[in-house]
Amino acid sequence: MIQVYNRKTKSYEEELIAGKKYIEWTYESPIGKNVTELIAKKKLFSKLYGTYCDTKLSASKIPSFIESFNIDMTLSKKKINEFNSFNDFFTRELHSEARPINKNKDILISPGDGRLTAYENIDLDNIVQIKGLTYSLKELIDDESIASKYSNGVCVILRLCPTDYHRFHFIDSGIPYESHHIKGHYYSVNPIALKAVPKLFCENKREWSLFKSDNFKDVLHVEVGATCVGSIIQSYSPNVKVNKGDEKGYFKFGGSTTILFFEKDSIKIDSDILEQSKLGFECKVLFGENIGTKII
């Protein structure tokens, strides 16, 4: 059972996991682990499933998925019968009023919907993946000079479940730079998998880019793919000014992760998020929700 912290009710909730039995089998049983290494982590497996999710045939899965995970479709721009495929539904856009954004330049907002953890004063060689397992930023982005900028800074990890809104956004106005692609595997990013695969974020397919934020110094964006994620789509234009809340991109089908790194003395994460992160719990957040403040 995976528990996440609800910031509004100040209580813990059990997470509803899409494909829970499959994930538990593939990452916890001896046979399942072999299947993961031989098949599930491979690009071909995710590419084939992603291709299926782009077909009209896959649209038949939408109603049962919505019902099983109690997804509020009143927030969606499209109605259920207007989606051409499961990926069309999965990457759905929301009405602008569905996710209000605090425009205060000193407020840090969540870049998307998901489960969030955050760590201050990070050691670049021992960044927490999940309690007890770490990785290095140099390994994650394969660029030591860029990584060194974030020594003793802040790391924010946003894990998106298949049931979440799957578009991610800019947390401030500023200039985004080009995205760098790093090839890798396609392990699940569910906590069950994170406990089973050391340095998983450094193993998976990922993309990273620098964002020259107007109010939070230079921010490092990293998007990590996962099992059955057909693509990481960057919808922004490099070197073109963006506004706070503008879309950066989206993930096609599957759970995925967005990681942000902030320079030292640039932001202060909200205390409840830091407290829960130290305890090993993720906080459930929505895009646009306040998660920190600028250090002035």
Rank of each mutant, 00 (worst) to 15 (best):
K244W: 10
G230R: 13
D270W: 00
K21F: 15
G184F: 13
T257S: 08
A98M: 07
G288P: 06
I109A: 05
S237I: 15
V229D: 01
A196T: 04
G112C: 13
N121A: 00
K20C: 03
I259E: 04
D164V: 01
S173N: 12
F45H: 12
Y187I: 07
T74D: 14
I127R: 11
K205L: 14
V128Q: 13
K42Q: 09
I39D: 02
D88H: 09
G249H: 09
G249A: 11
F170Q: 13
I17H: 09
Q234W: 03
L279T: 03
V35D: 03
N215R: 10
K105W: 00
L160Y: 02
V189C: 10
G19H: 04
E203V: 04
L124C: 08
D164G: 08
T36M: 12
F287C: 03
R92E: 11
D214I: 01
K79L: 07
G225Q: 09
K217I: 00
F83E: 02
I31L: 14
K131H: 12
S179C: 03
M1K: 07
D265K: 14
A193N: 07
S96Y: 08
Y22G: 11
C155M: 15
G245Y: 02
K183V: 11
L16M: 08
K205A: 06
S58R: 03
F90R: 04
V197A: 01
D125M: 06
S46T: 11
N215S: 14
H221F: 15
F253T: 05
F201H: 10
N81R: 05
I295P: 04
K284F: 01
K248W: 09
Y236S: 07
R167Q: 07
D123H: 06
A147E: 03
H166R: 02
N204P: 10
V4D: 02
A147T: 05
G292Q: 05
P238E: 01
L75D: 05
F287K: 11
L140H: 09
I273K: 07
Y186T: 08
I39L: 15
G132Y: 09
L210S: 10
G19R: 10
C202V: 03
A193W: 07
E223F: 04
S213P: 11
A40S: 12
I269K: 08
S256R: 12
A59W: 00
L286C: 06
I182T: 06
Y165H: 03
D142S: 14
I171K: 03
K8P: 00
D72L: 04
G230F: 14
F261S: 02
E97T: 09
I146D: 00
K149P: 07
D143E: 14
K278F: 06
K212E: 15
P111W: 14
L57G: 01
M1C: 01
I130Y: 13
N290Y: 08
R7A: 15
E207H: 14
A59M: 00
L38R: 04
Y52N: 03
F216I: 01
R7C: 10
F170H: 13
K205C: 08
L194W: 12
K138F: 08
I66H: 10
Y22E: 15
L124R: 04
K241F: 11
I127N: 07
R206L: 10
A118H: 04
K41N: 15
A98W: 09
R159M: 02
N152S: 14
L116I: 00
K33A: 00
L200A: 08
E13Y: 03
K183M: 12
S271E: 15
K268F: 10
K183S: 15
T74V: 12
N70Q: 14
F261M: 10
